[in-house]
Simulated scan of single mutants.
Amino acid sequence: MINTKLLAALGVSFAALATPALAQEPLSFRVAPQYDANSVEARDTSAFRSAALKSDAVSIESSRIALERSRNPNVRNYAKNVLVEREATTKALLPEGTSLTAGGTVVSDSQPFETRLDNPVGVVLAPVTISASIAQKIVGGVLGGVGLVDNSPGEPGRRVAIGPEGQARIDSLKNARSAREFDRTYARQQARSDARTLGLYEAYSRNGDNAQGREFANQALPYIANQHGHSAILADRIGG
């Protein structure tokens, strides 16, 4: 059963999910490679968590930049929703006081060394602190509690290390030469990212090796589909 409190907390309505625009063929199955049942992210909880967190981190940072640079009200409204919704899933996936390293390991933030943004293991991003009241039984470590937290890691971490692919996405936004170029790049990137995230959650919800994780993925799927529907429409309208 879908947890309506979870969806309400994430700002998703059943009316929005039923709109004609979202009933069309999902862009995800036309523009992005999907995770199949045999992919490690579809089965292994740690791999799923790593992929989902990296997607969150890049979308959060991209949307923060969008709010700084874009004056398009549709782009700005979408970006605001991304900040709230992706922080909610980040909180559900990553225990407080821990980070995801570039190697995909969850580590304690209580470490005897300084983390630098120019460290060689990958650029790290801290999700924005926007309050999202989400059902307590879903967050607080449903997936964050799966597996051990490394208290003596070989590489540092402060929240989520996005790696070179994610950094390239952010760099392309920063290098956009005009407001229109920025909006088109942002919308196109987010449509593809949301498509891939939708495929990730859908695959894990069916094949994941953790029952609580599958429940979380299933409950998050409607709002991820809603977010994807909006980014797909945005990209089409802007010309992405």
Rank of each mutant, 00 (worst) to 15 (best):
M1P: 11
L7C: 01
S13K: 03
S13M: 02
A16I: 07
L22H: 09
Q24I: 12
E25P: 12
D36S: 13
D36N: 15
E41K: 01
L53M: 03
D56E: 14
E61F: 05
R64T: 08
I65A: 13
A66D: 00
A66C: 03
A66V: 01
N72D: 09
N74V: 10
N77C: 09
A88M: 05
T89D: 07
E96D: 14
G97F: 03
S99G: 14
L100E: 06
T101M: 02
T101N: 06
T105M: 02
V106Q: 06
S110K: 15
N119I: 10
N119E: 10
P127S: 06
S133M: 05
A135V: 11
V139T: 12
G141A: 04
V142G: 12
G144N: 07
L148N: 12
D150N: 09
S152R: 08
G154E: 03
D171K: 08
S172V: 09
N175W: 11
Y186T: 02
D194C: 06
T197I: 13
T197K: 14
T197L: 15
L198S: 11
R206T: 06
G208P: 09
G208V: 04
E215R: 07
N218T: 13
A220R: 04
Q227A: 12
H230D: 14
I238A: 01
I238V: 07
